[in-house]
Every structure is written in C-alpha cells, then in structure tokens.
Amino acid sequence: MITIKNLHASVDGKEILKGINLDIKAGEIHAIMGPNGSGKSTLSSVLAGKDDYEVTEGEVQFNGKNLLDMDAEDRAREGLFLAFQYPVEIPGVSNINFLKTAVNEIREYHGLTPMEGKDFLAMVKEKQKLVELDGKLTNRSVNEGFSGGEKKRNEIFQMAMLNPKLAILDETDSGLDIDALKIVANGVNTLKTKDNAFVVITHYQRLLDYIVPDFVHILYKGKIVKSGGKELALELEAKGYDEVKAKFENQ
C-alpha cells in the first residue's frame, strides 16, 4: 500500500522527521504512538501533502506511485485520507456541498460521472448513521460550531464517504469520551477490508482495545525507535514513555 523510506522533513529549516521507514500493506492496521512533539502530525501532514513542510530526503511509494510528486488533492484522489488532529472550521461552506464536491472531484479523477443527487443523499444518510452524526450538522458550515467530539466524528464520516485506500487517523481519539470513542472505532472496523489500510495515531492504549492494530510503532524525535505487535501498546501504557525517552534521548 505505502512504503516510506528514509523520510526526512523540515519546517523553517528545522528538521522534524529524521529518517522514517515504514511499510504498510493492504489489510493492515498500524498504530503510531509517541510523546507530544515527536513528529506524528508532521508525518501525517507530509504524507497528505501540506506544503509548509519541506521533504529533504527519502521517498514514499503509494500503490506504486511517487506520492511526494503529487499535489495534496491528487493524493486524496489516489485514496489517501487524513483525519485531522485539528479539523478546520470553514464558515460559509456547507458540509454537504463540500462533501459533494469532494466525492465528485475524486470520481472525475477516476473518469467517473458525478454522482446522482439522490444516490449521494442516500450515501450521506447511511454513513451518518455509521458515526451517529446528527443530520442537522451536515447542513451547517464545515465544522463550524461543532463540539470537539462532533468534529472528530465528522472526520470519520468524511472518511466513510470518500472510502479511501489508506486512512491516517491523527489522534482522532483525543478528547473523546468512551461512547464517542466506540463510535469512531466502530466506524473504522466497519470500513476496514482486506483491500484498505489504517494508520492510527494515538497516545492512548484504550483506543487500541477497540481498533486492534497489527503493528505498533513508537515515534520519538522524528524517528521510529521501536516497532512491535499490539503488546507494545500495552507495555507503553504500563511503563509510560520514560524508558523510551531515556533510552533514545541522546540519539
């Protein structure tokens, strides 16, 4: 699905990602954990194509294509999805219009005709149910006045609508109560197939009780310092990051 090799990225001349290597295959769920400021969101943004970041070294292959050569919109059209840690409020742009444009531009990229209005609305209804998102919210402006939990569920709703090949969930669980967390996890588990993959970025093991990862990686100071199975998350939960920090402080 995606192969990241020796990825280095900087912002304003400051190196944040210092050689990331990661290989994700279809059907897999990877969790990335790590203390604040490690570079988790930077990695997500670099992959999604935010141009504040400069890639100084390395390469990323996404389903056989050079991801780093593509504009953000083309990465999305190729099937990459980022659930933002901080979803952006866009006053004056209705959620529904936004989604319709997104769905149809992605379809156009793949040579498909725009979706029929009623089919689109039926899909909206179905996917809304999946994340238990209030129907009223879809008629409002994108994320405007949404609560923290509503914003996160809206990200998962969008994910469900766009049906990506690779979805990166950047701390989608942070700040969610247990019910909302279950809803998000249920969304992911329902959408998961053998043909797609998920990267779940989180601080907390509790999400991983619901979304069970095949691999867990620890990102620290811009590098993946440790990888393992789902037991690594439990270990981290028990011991905290101190051991990791102490061990890799000087690298």
Binding site: A48, G49, K50, D71, A72, E73, R75, A76, R77, F81, L82, F84, P87, V88, I90, V93, N97, F98, L99, T101, A102, E105, I106, Y109, V142, Q158, L162
Partner: peptide, 18 residues
C-alpha cells in the same frame, strides 16, 4: 482551510471558489 479542502480531493481552483 485550503489544505483541508485539498486533502479531501478538492482541487485548488474549486477550493478557491468555495
């Protein structure tokens, strides 16, 4: 906002219009 729209597959021109 521009990046958010682009990240959903909406091209620069239509995102700008929106």
């Amino acid at each position: 906002a521009m990046f958010y729209l682009n990240a959903r597959g909406i091209g620069k021109e239509s995102a700008k219009k929106m």
